[in-house]
Computed example of a mutant assay.
Amino acid sequence: MTVNTTSEISADRALKRERLCSLLRAEDSSVWLSSPAAVAWYLDGARIHTSLVGPPVAGVLVGRDVEQVVSFSNEADRLAAEELPAGLELRTVPWHAPLESALVDIPGLRREVDMEPEVRAARAALLPRELARFEQLCAETAALLTTHLRTFSSRRTERQLAAEISAGIVELGADPVVVMIAGATRLTYRHPLPTDAPVGDRAMIVVCARRHGLIANLTRWVRVGAPHPEDLERERRILAVEAAYLGATRQGRTLDQVLREGAAAYAENDFDAEEWQNHHQGGAAGYAGRDPRAAPETPDMIQDQQAFAWNPSAPGAKVEDTVLLDGAEIRPLTVDPSWPSVTVNGIPRPVTLEV
Rank of each mutant, 00 (worst) to 15 (best):
P194Y: 12
G213W: 05
R293V: 07
G59N: 06
R293I: 09
A294D: 01
T157D: 06
V319K: 02
W32L: 12
T298L: 02
E171L: 09
Y287P: 00
E354L: 15
V119Q: 14
R155G: 11
L131S: 00
H49Q: 13
W310C: 08
S338M: 01
V207M: 12
E116M: 08
A132R: 05
L23Y: 12
D12V: 07
R91I: 10
E329N: 04
L259F: 10
Q281W: 03
A38F: 11
A273G: 13
P117V: 09
H148L: 04
A121N: 07
S73W: 01
L187E: 07
L259W: 10
G346N: 05
P229S: 11
N4L: 15
A80I: 00
P128S: 03
L149C: 01
F271E: 15
Q68D: 01
D231Y: 07
A81Q: 13
R159F: 01
N217R: 01
W221R: 04
V351I: 15
A267T: 11
R129W: 11
Y189H: 13
T141W: 09
R236Q: 14
A132Q: 03
G54W: 08
T185F: 07
I181R: 03
H280M: 10
D77G: 02
N311I: 10
Y189D: 12
E171W: 00
E89F: 07
E268A: 15
Q305E: 13
R250V: 13
